[in-house]
Design a binder for these strands. Structure first.
Lengths: 253, 253
DNA sequence: ACATTCAAATGATAACGATCAAGACCGGAA
DNA sequence: TTCCGGTCTTGATCGTTATCATTTGAATGT
């Protein structure tokens, strides 16, 4: 797969889809409020838009690979993306699931430290590092926003270290479901029937477990009346308080 | 311990130790080159120094606790610090060991997300978030440097997620030793007899293992001729290539 | 030198999650 | 509809690491 990408950023088609006369970033609707382009002055948005490149990508599309020259930063407009790192023998660790408004692609040594792949059909905004750097100092609010988002990412990564290093399978899954639920709420979606746009394998590689353990844990939580599994790809948080207790490591329950 | 802190930032003594006539940050010697105060103009350093507070802390001193109001950012001048998060039942995950030049204490919601504790006697520089924020926009290079350091921290955290989620005990220990060795080199110390200023318990809580497993793994690696354990708190990297192979997950070996 | 204390190493056993192996389910194509 | 490919679930067993228990060792103080 991905040998013949049906669409990519190079295709001018993507740019043509954006009405140049429209207020820049109008396309982004809600996302404007939470993405890194939020909180900017009209002038800043205009300037930012001039170096932006929008694209619609299909599901399971590799945006870039670990080690690729890091030329762009991305912002998710709509859809979902996963970031992962690999060991030489194929073991995989997913380091993040991204949704509308999330940013990715920052790198220091000219090479991405992870692979980025869409989970579902996804719209992205792309910015060139070089051009952003060139505007350095001219868009203080943007820089500050990117900084803040990076600090948030770091804190989230630290939470995940606690999960990976010290939580049980049950606690890991509970934490994961709550995180997804909260994230859905941020996007104005209901907290409870949570959509899981990723496969069991993805969940396993995010939580440091195997597919089988993830599956068994879902089944157990369902048996215990903590969650419901109405349809593939959807979870009902029947007992959110119970989930929270589990997630925080309240031994019993 | 820490019930009667023998020294702290509030004590004016710490400030008196700094010669106000000396070029600011002269005390920091080498650290100046790698800390976040590096790469600043003379004017910026002067301004930064005006809101700085230096302190010498003893070993095993709690600098702040998870949940405390986040009022300061810190930079390690000399010594070593560990950052950790706790679960309600006491399970602990160390999310980082910090050395000269490292920064910590960034927070978003007014509360530190982790506890910070010295490993050994340590000198710190402290800055008030409020004052730094007040200077926002006036010290672009400082902001950029802090951003860069945060991105680096994030990438390091992502590496650690791969370790915690997907590496074996042996691979974890190998990775840890290599990381310490590289870090020592950055500080101009030799790569090979690496100092371990932290306890086995700290290492275990950093790698998501138990004390016993860490101990056994050290013993094994020694038996296999990959490392040497000349004295408590020191490790010789006998076979660095072997360690690297292990760390990257080269199944065999 | 010896007692005391705490950290580290080692040993024995258990458990959680991994691995191996079927079988169930679901969606898409003919 | 039926077949086919995949993912997900469930079952049986194994193994790595955790847990429990003890010994060794190193540092500190008397």
């Amino acid at each position: 797969m991905n040998l013949m990408p049906p669409l990519d950023f190079e295709a001018p088609k993507a740019d043509r889809d954006i009405d140049p006369a429209a207020p820049p970033c109008r396309n982004c609707d809600v996302v404007r409020e939470i993405a890194f382009c939020a909180d900017l002055s009209a002038d800043e948005i205009k300037r930012l838009a001039s170096v932006r490149c929008h694209a619609q990508l299909p599901a399971h599309f590799t945006i870039f690979r670990e080690g690729d020259r890091a030329e762009h930063v991305y912002s998710v407009s709509h859809g979902a993306v996963k970031l992962y790192k690999l060991l030489s023998d194929g073991r995989r660790q997913i380091i993040g699931f991204l949704f509308s408004g999330d940013m990715f692609g920052l790198a220091l040594d000219d090479g991405y430290a992870y692979t980025a792949e869409t989970l579902v059909a996804t719209q992205l905004c792309r910015f060139t590092h070089r051009k952003l750097d060139a505007m350095q100092g001219q868009m203080p609010r943007l820089e500050r926003r990117m900084f803040t988002m990076t600090v948030k990412d770091l804190m989230s990564a630290q939470e995940q270290m606690l999960l990976l290093g010290r939580k049980t399978a049950r606690e890991k899954v509970a934490t994961f479901l709550l995180k997804l639920s909260r994230r859905a709420q941020v996007q104005g979606l209901p907290a409870s029937p949570v959509a899981l746009p990723m496969s069991r394998a993805d969940i396993a590689d995010y939580l440091g477990l195997t597919i089988e353990t993830v599956s068994r844990t879902f089944t157990q939580l369902k048996k215990d009346g903590i969650i419901g599994l109405p349809a593939s790809g959807h979870v009902v948080l029947t007992d959110e308080a119970g989930l929270k207790e589990l997630a925080e490591g309240a031994s019993a329950a």
